[in-house]
Nucleic acid binder design. Structure first.
Lengths: 236, 236
DNA sequence: TATCTGATCTTTACGATGTAAAGATCACGG
DNA sequence: CCGTGATCTTTACATCGTAAAGATCAGATA
């Protein structure tokens, strides 16, 4: 409350740039450059910081600009729109997410362990970065026509489809899908995504409270996944 | 755009209420009452209308007041807050939702048909009322300490737990849960909720496009549910 | 009957947000 | 040496949520 748009930034004063140190800044990353130089990246990092500090509701264009120490209209030039910023930030999130999933798969020795490690890493990422997950899956203001977001999100989906494919011991072609394959993918994705959403929204606390003392959400997820559901139907 | 806060409402003029029709309005619902009389209900209905017309982003306190033909500060008196209005509206949604689920269960003859009818009704409601579903499950501004919302949401959960219980042919006690029971409930809920979210967000279109021409989401959901996942684990 | 009282609704006001438009500032190439 | 275009800042505007004070009415009270 009462944050009446404070935080004046000094930056370069009116006409005091004639006696500069070197005409070519080279690697002079200290001292904010005159036009900042790498505002785009700085804004994305600032946005991530704001998101972790103040949550989804606190992530506004002006708050991000404030955090980065620039005027409130500066982000517009780089992202055009709030949708633009959110979309690019979501792309960053998807890349982090994909990296976490890949890392979790590599550390798992057996395929069976991997089939458990992936969902666990999924939920773990969402719990560690609830704001990011919210931007990726809760916000309606995402523009998937942006190449970076489209690419990152598609990579995420490809990883999932591939994991389901190896679990079923068959190759998932990038073209067509059988109903059984599609159902397996959608089932896995829906379940983990739904579980994560309900968990983050605190809607599973009712269930958790009725379980033996000290049962963790991870344990519940494990139990949910133990009845295998990636296999082909009986008559095939 | 350029909707510069129009829509003046006439209502009662300054001092022209002396020559009123009857001192006791009784059942005079025609002609807006002087203090409106039932603003609370009218606001909720207006909110539902705005939601269906303009979506989640268009559902603002002022828009609802405009739709109901009252001043923009009138809702505050009845709901206190935007969170208050959203919570009461979500409660309405949960009641509609519960009614739809109950109706779907009654029309199904066999228990097996019922186990399919419930999820289908779930998704069907969300598709028919995406705005409402968004308020119930996407918004972060919900106050579950409000009795009406808490009650409606809990009834929804109870219905789900009960359905899973009958599918497993056992009684779900309102007190404690075994891990197997909890897993079955969480699995069913997560899967349907996650599927609905992904479907509403258009994230399943990639999968749907790779399926045989004309395959509907309902068909995919059916396939997802066909590999039964409510049974007790083998060693029990 | 006349007045008081509390609930309901309206006005007014303030800080915050997204976005558009115009002005300033800088690197770079003619 | 001077434009030129990209980058950033200022200024402005419509809208939003919320608070606070004023108007309006029904019903109780004297």
């Amino acid at each position: 409350m009462a944050k009446t748009e404070t935080a004046r930034r000094p930056r370069a004063s009116k006409k005091t740039s004639s006696a500069s140190a070197s005409p070519r800044p080279a690697s002079a990353k200290t001292e904010t450059p005159y036009h900042h130089g790498a505002l785009r990246e700085a804004l994305l990092q600032a946005a991530e910081r704001v998101l972790e500090r103040d949550g989804l509701a606190g992530l506004t264009l002006r708050a991000v600009a404030r955090e980065a120490g620039v005027s409130h209209a500066a982000p517009t030039h780089h992202f055009g729109d709030l949708t633009g910023l959110l979309s690019e930030l979501a792309a960053v999130g998807f890349r982090q997410f994909n990296a976490a999933m890949a890392a979790a798969c590599e550390t798992a020795p057996t395929p069976l362990a991997r089939s458990l490690a992936r969902p666990k890493a999924y939920v773990a990422y969402a719990q560690a970065h609830p704001g990011m997950y919210g931007i990726m899956f809760r916000t309606e203001r995402l523009d998937y026509s942006r190449p970076s977001l489209n690419e990152a999100a598609e990579a995420s989906f490809a990883g999932l489809a591939n994991a389901v494919g190896t679990m079923r011991q068959e190759q998932i072609s990038g073209d067509a899908l059988t109903l059984s394959q599609a159902a397996a993918i959608a089932r896995a994705w829906s379940m983990v995504h739904g579980f994560t959403m309900l968990l983050l929204d605190g809607r599973l606390e009712d269930i958790m409270g009725r379980l033996p003392e000290g049962t963790t959400p991870e344990r519940l997820l494990e139990a949910m996944l133990m009845t295998p559901m990636g296999g082909k139907p009986p008559g095939s």
